[in-house]
Amino acid sequence: MDLLNAFITLSNFVIIPAIAYGSQLALGALGVTLIYGILRFSNFAHGDTMAFGTMVTILFTWWFQHLGLSLGPFPTALLALPFGIAGCALFVLLTDRAVYRFYRVQKAKPVILVIVSMGVMFIMNGVVRFIIGPDDHNFGDGERFIISARTFREMTGLEEGLAIRTSTGITVVTAVVVVALLFWFLNKTRTGKSMRAYSDNEDLALLSGINPEKVVVVTWVIVAALATVAGTLYGLDKSFKAFTYFQLLLPIFASAIVGGLGSPVGAIAGGFVIAFSEVTITYAWKKVITYVVPESMAPDGLVQLLSTDYKFAVSFIILLVVLLFRPTGLFKGKSV
């Protein structure tokens, strides 16, 4: 039995990746939940909004690399991120002007807006593929590791290595900063409070003199920022491919719904629930178990509950269970 090595293995392959993935999902789910709470529809275009923002970030990253700008050990993408956010916000605001506002003025039903957002999704998807192509892009540069597995082994003398990638570190730190800023904004600033008021009770907000168009604009800008940050972090961690971002829609919605649609705290909790479930269920536990149990009981198979090819099934099942037994989610969002 070797608990220490078991724990290191577990951290390396389950805990750390799940924390990074969870942070990315949480940021994505926050965007979905804000749109749901304030604009009152499920935005199916969110995955592609993330793709669009990330694409702009990548284009700027390439340009900066071409100019020879860099952040040393950090990826150049961080420098490009503000431009990605601005580009994404602009695009999303244009979409709102051209498409969503028309339906808002008519007070269209949420179902109609959901379908409209699917249309927007296809268009954004097309735009992204048209500009950057359907292929995989790796745009991370700078140091790859904060601690590499080899260094860790040499440092500790343990058999197992623990690697912490730069992208993981950046993901977690950025996510914490962004979430802290968001909560400060929603709870402490007047604009944030107007957004919450609008989300609580639209009629009353209007009669209290809150300008709905302003709330809508601010909401879209924040959502664009969250989407671009989430997308860029995901892309740095894995890679960028338009189709992958479209697929992310399922775990992101699952996170938002599990946490309770409309509840920001819920979105974060949901992101981690989904991430941990997905990673633990698709992880091959053989190594960890071999360390923990006596030698004679060591498993022969991989002890993998589900192949990674089916990872989306995990979100789907959790989603179904939550919708059946607790439709308002963990944090009492609005029921779907």
């Binding site: 904004f185 600033t189 007047r190 604009t191 409070k193 107007s194 919450r196 008021a197 989300s199 609580d200 009770n201 009629d203 009353l204 907000a205 209290s208 003199g209 809150i210 300008n211 302003k214 601010v218």
Partner: peptide, 27 residues
């Protein structure tokens, strides 16, 4: 009607719209 997630005091404080805190710049 009320803003359910806010306290009664905050509910009242929401009323006068268009305060300087509402502009992102001033924030």
């Amino acid at each position: 009607h009320e803003f359910g997630s806010m306290s009664c005091r905050e509910n009242l404080m929401m009323v006068p719209g268009n305060q300087s805190g509402e502009s992102l710049w001033n924030t």
